[in-house]
Design a protein around this nucleic acid. Structure first.
Lengths: 217, 217
DNA sequence: TGCAAATGTTACCTACGGTAACAGGAGTCT
DNA sequence: AGACTCCTGTTACCGTAGGTAACATTTGCA
């Protein structure tokens, strides 16, 4: 196997151990993307052409491997989100661009998304593999990131820092849940979803009138 | 092989099978709330005073048991949410009441919350995602429920049904993520969180001005 | 009484995460 | 050279989990 394609770092300056670790991570990535989040350590080892104990020497336990794997993807996603978020544009455009960036990412690589957001818990009795250690970090990091941008660029008056964090996590959760639902059912185009969510954030819920002939009111 | 001999009993009396099933479910509930979502079938059987195969005869597999367990709590939570949602009050008050109901529920019983939000759907050899198939996650049901209420009571013009679903899932996700973060860090009171989220939904993000001296803008 | 169904058991299987214990190869120090 | 260490790699094994087969027992009812 000559899969020497390294993503960004310079291979000639990496120690052998680091290069090996990277190879293993890429093999793990292939397996996880093929077999889903429940991929077994044996399968990953087989894909890498080696056996289990080596994986354990490199990553400690399954949680370590999955954390390393998740970190790569979350960092990449966060970087692109930050770009959309920090763009010099009007607020609504930034919001729409960020929503679209996120949705495009999960649309382009749903397997990665499923791995990051819905890790397998395949072995309930395990020692220390918890969803909170993987999916929560991504959502939390996105929420904190967004909170910083809000607090930095939006004038919210007193208590702004706390409010910005509430909004950051809330908006991220909105994006995540809507994206998850959308990815499963595909009830509309991505652009329509982005518009709908942006409209929601822009107060259209408050502005809309009551429906005539509502039940019992 | 399936006959109706059990259903022809009087409706006001539960069959022995149903009573047994209920007992098992309550035992499972105790164990799950004590040991977390990773509770083993053996532990549940022991708590119920019986052995594994009986559980499997009643619920098929672990997923079945967990689905039955989740359904009970989900139904209870959804009922109280629906009450807040359908109250004859102004929209903002209904929104705040619903948010508060949800947050109060997860605050009162975080164990139940953790179980519902992270159900151990780990099925060996899953090779994909059956999410939304057997154990319709709580978030989805809440999203659909909210969408119905929105579509029913809010005048959204053309495309209202689709937009209502987008908003339903989005708002539920916002509530969920903010609640999850809040439950972990407790950065403010419940009432403050409710106000912050309601303000967000009421378009305060769009109404707020840009902050003076923002970076590069 | 007899018979079928439901309830219960023990014992076992497979698969997974995780861990010894051991075998070689490449440098390195004396 | 030889010994010493570090890294890679192996086979074999353990404990526990989900899930099932086969057998024993009670129950309900014609």
């Amino acid at each position: 196997m000559e899969t020497t394609q390294l993503t960004d770092q310079r291979a000639d300056q990496m120690s052998a151990a680091e290069r090996r670790r990277r190879e293993l991570l890429e093999a793990a990535d292939r397996v996880v993307l093929r077999d889903g989040p429940g991929a077994s350590m044996n399968a990953i080892a087989a894909e890498a052409g080696i056996t289990k104990p080596i994986l354990y020497r490199h990553f400690g336990d399954k949680g370590g491997l999955y954390a390393a794997l998740a970190t790569r993807h979350t960092d990449a996603l966060l970087a692109s989100l930050r770009a959309a978020l920090d763009a010099p544009a009007a607020r609504r455009e930034r919001v729409e661009a960020t929503l679209d960036t996120y949705l495009a990412a999960i649309e382009a690589r749903p397997q990665v998304y499923r791995f990051l957001m819905h890790p397998a818990e395949g072995s309930p009795g395990d020692s220390g593999f918890d969803v909170g250690r993987h999916s929560a970090p991504l959502l939390r990091r996105m929420g904190e990131e967004l909170a910083e941008v809000i607090e930095e660029r939006v004038d919210l008056g007193p208590g702004s820092q706390q409010l910005a964090r509430v909004w950051g996590h809330g908006i991220v959760g909105m994006m995540h849940a809507a994206g998850d639902w959308w990815l499963g059912e595909r009830p509309c185009t991505r652009a329509e979803l982005v518009q709908g969510l942006a409209d929601l954030l822009w107060g259209r819920l408050a502005a809309a009138g009551d429906k005539a002939g509502g039940p019992g009111f």
